[in-house]
């Protein structure tokens, strides 16, 4: 058996690849469900129902998709330039910290100004969190994967300290929890009596912006060139360091956005469980979307559905809801293979 480069890529194959990958991931998960002794059909029925089965389910899924779109974009932009930012989780918390610091009374503006102000601050904070890894990568050639990963832990501990110390809400009865965001800073709801908020619009708008950036601008051209072949890019006159820095700021900023949507849209205040791994799940979102910004919207909604649906499934048929993480992880791996097969064909012999 060997692999042979396809001379032409088929558009439909590229379209089909993530769907096949998800199917494979679901088959793997079916194996686990069978192992638990529960009926597979019923389990998936509840998963589907919990994710997309009602208006309420849809609002829950879309609310969950909001941060995933943003962290997914963060990963997609960075990976396009082969800048392996695995620190989305930490950058998300940086954004949330900025919102908490500025939005709990320090600055008071009318909502039309307050909300953009918080988003700007969050993006800046997220971007700043990547300055050190970028500096170490470009100046000292320290691998950014490990630094961004380690920074996640450092940032989380720092948040933990702030929540138990300086930022602690005195009214929180001992819980490590920050003061609530002032009303002017809270994102409006999109659907009454649901958790779906304005953040979704921000997410979708960001995806469109990133698409325009990658597809139509010189920065986007440079990012793609640096990602595919940094040596050739440098030779042609593109500054690699500048491009990497730009990518990092955009990527960190997007992850910072996700922190804002969660603090100011969903929860209203910062806690240590603000993100159940949105930063890491963003990698899965990006990979499933083949790093395409508009695809990120679809894959984020899909993965959010898995997470939300898994909770319903877990309650209904009593399967550990970690199954959602298994499905997401398995789809990351299987999409790698299916995307490869859009470029290579398998020849037997």
């Amino acid at each position: 058996m060997r692999l042979e480069l396809r001379e032409e890529t088929n558009f439909w194959l590229v379209f089909l690849a993530p769907i096949v990958a998800i199917a494979i991931a679901l088959i793997i998960a079916s194996g686990l469900i069978i192992w638990t002794g529960k009926p597979v059909g019923e389990a998936y029925f509840y998963l589907l129902k919990g994710a997309f089965g009602s208006g309420f389910a849809w609002t829950e899924t879309l609310a969950r998709a909001t941060p995933l779109i943003l962290t997914g974009l963060a990963a997609a932009v960075a990976f396009r330039a082969r800048f392996w930012n695995i620190g989305g989780e930490g950058q998300l918390y940086c954004g949330a910290l900025a919102a908490t610091w500025l939005g709990t009374g320090m600055v008071t503006l009318p909502p039309v100004l307050m909300i953009p102000f918080l988003f700007t601050a969050g993006a800046l904070a997220g971007g700043l969190a990547l300055l050190l890894p970028v500096y170490l990568k470009t100046k000292l050639k320290v691998d950014e994967v490990v630094t961004t990963l380690l920074l996640n832990f450092i940032i989380l501990l720092f948040v933990n300290y702030l929540l138990e110390g300086p930022l602690k809400d005195p009214m929180s009865l001992g819980w490590p929890q920050a003061m609530p965001i002032i009303d002017q800073g809270l994102l409006p709801k999109l659907v009454e009596k649901s958790r779906l908020h304005f953040g979704l619009i921000v997410g979708i708008a960001s995806a469109v912006m990133v698409w325009v950036l990658m597809r139509f601008t010189i920065w986007g051209y440079e990012i793609r060139a640096v990602g595919h072949n940094p040596e050739a890019a440098a030779f042609a006159g593109i500054s690699i360091n500048r491009t990497v820095l730009r990518v990092a700021l955009i990527s960190g900023g997007l992850a910072g956005f996700a922190g804002i949507t969660e603090v100011a849209g969903l929860k209203g205040y910062l806690t240590l469980d603000l993100s159940p791994g949105f930063g890491y799940a963003g990698i899965a979102v990006a990979m499933l979307a083949n790093l395409r910004p508009l695809g990120v919207i679809v894959s984020a909604i899909f993965l959010a559905g898995i997470y939300v649906g898994a909770d319903t499934m877990s309650r209904a048929v009593n399967i550990p809801n970690y199954i959602a993480d298994v499905i997401v992880a398995a789809s990351v791996l299987s999409v790698l293979v299916s995307l490869m097969l859009t470029q290579y064909r398998v020849r037997l012999r």
């Binding site: 051209y221 060139a225 072949n229 050739a232 890019a233």
Partner: peptide
């Protein structure tokens, strides 16, 4: 390795020194 970005299109590689 240095002359072209193989994964980008021919026209994109032709313009890559004259982008700006």
């Amino acid at each position: 390795a240095v002359g072209v970005v193989g994964d980008m299109t021919i026209w994109e590689n032709i313009i890559n020194e004259n982008l700006r």
